[in-house]
Amino acid sequence: MIILIRYFMLLMLSLQISGNHSIYNDNLTGGKELYAKHCLPCHQAEGSGVPGMFPPLVNTEKVIGQPDSLIRIVLFGLKGPTEVAGQIYTQEMPAAGHLTDPEVAEILTWIRSSWGNKATAVTSKRVAEIRLKGN
């Protein structure tokens, strides 16, 4: 009986693996693709973040306000408590300075115009200037 149950479970396992799907199974391009690779694991597919751990990116001044501080966060990371939508987040965000200027610009432009966000594009020229200036 146990062998039968195990055989059934193995079948389920193989079905599960073949049936598993990514939320993004369409062809990704530009900012959306870069977001999925570098940001989505923490900030999630719809920019909702994780309650108590990682802040949301939707309709918050830190994302849709003037872009310089947002560029700084991505290039140099963020330490210390930060408040978003009335919640305090303490976990450090790692710097993503390994991304190129155009990549940072594409990601931020995409974030600033997704999930209901409607903010101006970020240029790679501005990213380069801020990178040069340092944190």
């Binding site: 598993n20 799907h21 990514s22 939320i23 993004y24 999925a36 989505l40 694991p41 923490c42 999630q44 597919a45 994780v50 751990m53 990682f54």
Partner: peptide
């Protein structure tokens, strides 16, 4: 979980 993204 949160760290299974992009999967369910």
């Amino acid at each position: 979980s949160w760290n299974r993204a992009p999967f369910e």
